[in-house]
Design a protein around this nucleic acid. Structure first.
Lengths: 234, 234
DNA sequence: GATATTTTAGTACATTATACTTTATAATGA
DNA sequence: TCATTATAAAGTATAATGTACTAAAATATC
């Protein structure tokens, strides 16, 4: 650590490589999954890595992340939120480079499968994620912690499900994220008590004999409630 | 947004100025305060600004922030946590520059007053913070939101109080942060129910006739409880 | 048509939060 | 000296919420 104050003008300040890496979560058949790909540049070319990019002069960090997500999945308007900056001096053997990690939630059936394969990307179940380059496995651990924290306080889990979903589906998502078994009856009761789900007339019969009613999350109502101080806690 | 993937080697990637700005909270006489200073470099030289610095090649972002805090307050081992990155392309009129903001909590009587004045820094009550350069006022708003969120879920408020503090003091801190009036009796009851405060034999008589008992936060016990899944909620 | 499986409704009890009453302590001033 | 006053601290009663569990409804499959 330097003890002297820095009064140099902008022009004489050190410039650094800035990257962004995306921890992309998906939920498929009751399993939480992550999107990773084979790195295309040296060093560590060909190794598994989070998808990411260097940040260009003319774009913000979230813009860079959205660019990457569009490239790899063909999707726009994805839930995306900053995780944190990774800035250890020796974190990247290629050069001094900081990465501002972002996590994204996508509806796993909406993305463009061809586009994903074209870029050498692949979905891994959370438990099967291989060794990744640099500090990317740490990023995943941190992102998962954040996801757990965030899903209990904000209704963002819906971003991982289809627009129309059943209550058992939502429950299995929460169980996958938090690695717990929840009581069906209490989960349902609490969820419905918010009065934020719109019950549809359709049923989903893909997973059971009886079939479960489909619901839709009432974003408009939630926005209003949130503004007036309402707190979602699941 | 570019639609093409970027396969260029590190050496051809764009480098960017990286700064860190510190939102420094203090608590004094029942009032939440922020440390700001007169900026020393152009553009906007002489304007009020958060304390901060560019990040050097050979230091991490938190290291840069700790360097700045040491310069301005003479303090080490301060509570410091990343807020978020500010990366809008035009956020700084001087150059393309991203800032990774950090918020810090300090015990306002411990810092070196001379050092603060030497650097043209000054404490402002939250409500009296002047117009700051760039997006620094936004950073404060965001940091305050984070502080509110964080203090209800983690026992970090203590970082703003002396080692020995009274329950009414802690309450007034929470009231200042959350801008609410809390019920004395229920606040005390809930707080003590965690059994995380060590009651001392001393009393603080500076604010009342009767005098209130001093307490010390039991960090060791909290660490253990936290590891075994305990959740602090105030 | 009985059986198995899953969804859905409901209920009883324990825990926690909230609103409020009372007592304790000690400086102050008549 | 003794009531007055301000604040701290302990307690209590009720409402709200969470937790554990019983039971019924729906329907594909045997």
């Amino acid at each position: 650590m330097k003890a002297l104050e820095n009064h140099l003008p902008y022009i004489e300040q050190p410039k650094i490589l800035v990257a962004t890496d995306c921890i992309v979560f998906g939920f498929d058949e009751g399993i939480l999954k992550l999107l990773v790909f084979r790195r295309r540049i040296d060093p560590l070319k060909g190794e598994w890595s989070l998808i990411g990019s260097f940040v260009n002069e003319e774009e913000s960090v979230p813009d860079a992340a959205r660019r990457v997500l569009l490239q790899f999945t063909g999707l726009e308007n994805i839930f995306l939120e900053e995780l944190k900056a990774y800035s250890d001096v020796d974190r990247d053997s290629g050069a001094r480079c900081i990465s501002i990690a972002q996590y994204a939630l996508i509806r796993i059936n909406d993305y463009d499968r061809e586009q994903v394969e074209l870029h050498g990307a692949k979905w891994f179940a959370l438990d099967d994620v291989p060794q990744l380059v640099l500090d990317h496995n740490t990023m995943i651990t941190d992102a998962l912690d954040r996801l757990r924290q965030k899903t209990t306080h904000k209704p963002i889990g819906f971003e991982l499900l289809p627009e129309k979903f059943t209550i058992p589906q939502l429950q299995s998502l929460y169980e996958a994220i938090h690695r717990t078994k929840l009581d069906d009856r209490n989960f349902r009761k609490k969820l419905l008590s918010f009065d934020l789900l719109i019950k549809l007339d359709e049923k989903d019969k893909s997973t059971s004999k009886k079939g479960a009613f489909l619901y839709r999350f009432n974003y408009d109502k939630y926005k209003k409630l949130e503004e007036s101080g309402f707190n979602f806690v699941l």
